[in-house]
Simulated assay, not measured.
Amino acid sequence: MAAILAIENGKIILEKQKRFPNGEVLEIPAGTLEKGEKPILCAFREFKEETGYEAKKMIPLIKFHPSISFSTEIVNCFVALQIKKVSEQKLEEYENISIVKIGFKKVLKMIKQGEITDSKTICAVLAYAAKKIN
């Protein structure tokens, strides 16, 4: 999986969508790698499909195992740089995603208060804060 942390004018681009059984959640854009696809290429593709934005650069941020005790899944998180809205979303039939932009400090507060519970979003935001990537 590739996950993308994108910040525009100090606000993180998040997706709002329903996730059974948890209801409506906020999370960063992400998607599954296609067979033979490199994580960075997946990040560029998924970011554009799910948000309508393009990034000129994707910088590796962190990778982690979300369920290390029973799964080999690895989530590769990237920071999208030099982003620009270029199109409408190109979603799959089953996807119903709204784009929400929330200030970085507010997202940190939402994580601390348990309002954002998605693991890839928490890992990416906290890793970014710790590394202070600009």
Score class of each variant (00 low, 15 high):
Leu126Gln: 14
Lys85Ile: 09
Phe64Leu: 03
Val79Gln: 10
His65Glu: 11
Ile111Asp: 11
Lys109Thr: 09
Lys120Ala: 12
Thr117His: 03
Phe64Thr: 00
Ile97Leu: 15
Tyr94Met: 11
Met110Trp: 03
Leu81Trp: 02
Lys131Asp: 06
Lys106Val: 13
Ile83Ser: 09
Ile97Ala: 09
Asn96His: 13
Phe78Asp: 01
Cys77Leu: 07
Ile122Trp: 10
Ile74Ala: 09
Ile97Arg: 15
Val86Leu: 04
Asp118His: 07
Phe70Gly: 14
Glu88Val: 12
Lys84Gly: 06
Lys90Pro: 01
Lys106Ile: 04
Gly103Glu: 12
Glu73Trp: 01
Val86Arg: 14
Phe78Ala: 02
Lys131Ile: 02
Phe64Asn: 00
Thr121Phe: 05
Val125Thr: 12
Tyr94Ala: 11
Lys109Asn: 07
Ile74His: 05
Gln89Lys: 15
Asn76Cys: 12
Ile102Leu: 01
Thr72Gly: 08
Leu81Asn: 03
Pro66Gln: 04
Leu108His: 01
Thr72Cys: 01
Ala124Tyr: 11
Ile62Phe: 04
Ile111Asn: 13
Gln82Lys: 14
Lys105Leu: 12
Gln82Ala: 10
Lys63Val: 01
Asn76Leu: 09
Ser71His: 13
Ile68Ser: 08
Leu126Cys: 07
Ile122Phe: 05
Glu92Trp: 07
Phe70Asn: 13
Lys112Trp: 00
Ser71Val: 01
Gln113His: 06
Ala130Asn: 14
Leu91Pro: 11
Lys90Phe: 07
Ile102Cys: 04
Ala80Gln: 09
Lys105Tyr: 08
Gln89Pro: 00
Lys85Arg: 13
Ile74Cys: 10
Leu81Thr: 04
Ser119Ala: 13
Gln82Val: 06
Thr72Met: 09
Glu93Ser: 11
Glu95Cys: 00
Ile68Trp: 03
Asn96Lys: 13
Ile111Thr: 06
Ser69Pro: 01
Lys131Ala: 07
Glu115Lys: 12
Val75Ala: 08
Gly103Arg: 05
Ala80Trp: 05
Lys63Cys: 09
Asn96Leu: 04
Leu91Lys: 12
Ser87Gln: 05
Lys109Leu: 08
Glu88Leu: 04
Thr121Trp: 07
Val75Ser: 07
Gln113Gly: 02
Ser71Trp: 05
Ile97Met: 07
Lys120Ile: 11
